[in-house]
Nucleic acid binder design. Sequence first.
DNA 1: CTTGAAAAATGGAGGGT
DNA 2: ACCCTCCATTTTTCAAG
Lengths: 153, 153
Amino acid sequence: MDQLDNIDLKLLRLLGEDSRLTTKELAAKVNLSPSPVFERVKRLEAAGYIKKYIALIDAEKLNYGLIIFCNIRLKQHDKSIGHQFVTDIMKLKEVVECYNISGDYDFLLKVYARDMKHYQDFVFNKLGSVKSIGSTHSTFVMCENKNTHNINF
Amino acid sequence: MDQLDNIDLKLLRLLGEDSRLTTKELAAKVNLSPSPVFERVKRLEAAGYIKKYIALIDAEKLNYGLIIFCNIRLKQHDKSIGHQFVTDIMKLKEVVECYNISGDYDFLLKVYARDMKHYQDFVFNKLGSVKSIGSTHSTFVMCENKNTHNINF
DNA sequence: CTTGAAAAATGGAGGGT
DNA sequence: ACCCTCCATTTTTCAAG
């Protein structure tokens, strides 16, 4: 699949907002019949433009009301230490996102916790047992103003 | 809907990973027949545990290869300035997430850009025209190691 | 891309524990 | 209250033109 036309892009935008739109509904929105839309979507899936379909779950309703961005500095910076850190961090269910970043710190984690007590336990007992960590700095989210989960292309 | 049993939680976990699982497939995984599973999912949707269904689009394939976390300090901290900032920032398509945070800065933005040139343009021309901004600090993502898009409850 | 038809899933009625 | 087994309707999926 070499390049996308405007209809492909529109389908991606629509599905990125609401993946429960039926082929018929998509067809109406792009002024085509269902069959070609179906084929286009299959092609977009096969070519990897659509990575997966998920349901967005309300974290607050499940008593995960606290979001924290946790900056982490490693003790050393060789490749194996970094790789070990990522492997260790992957196992922690509270960690939803993990980025290798530029600047003062090496990694940025997005963490979901039930409350402060839970986060304290996470930092002391879970991060505390990851040997490669040198120091951490936590930034607490007071309000999530926007989260689209997809790029707005 | 007062409280969820283990089957409800399992359904949320399954749909949070793959929302294209059919009622039949979900039923097999929780050892029930399709009908009660269908009803449970509808209840979870109506009660807001499932916020929406989306397709995850590959940003890199659409030439949005650069992720930046942009820390922002406002000039002043009264309510109306903060509200105006959020309103202005919402309109910027490059901004995918926006958080009101504790610490040295007031807001944290997650930004997707095509490349450095695009990001430079974003900072100078788009953020540059948001009057409420005092100063900014950008952290560049070198590697996205993990992004689950949902809590792991 | 269109038409059209088979296969599958959705969504509901009615009954059982 | 919760679950099950059908069954009609709709949607998906894939031919052939």
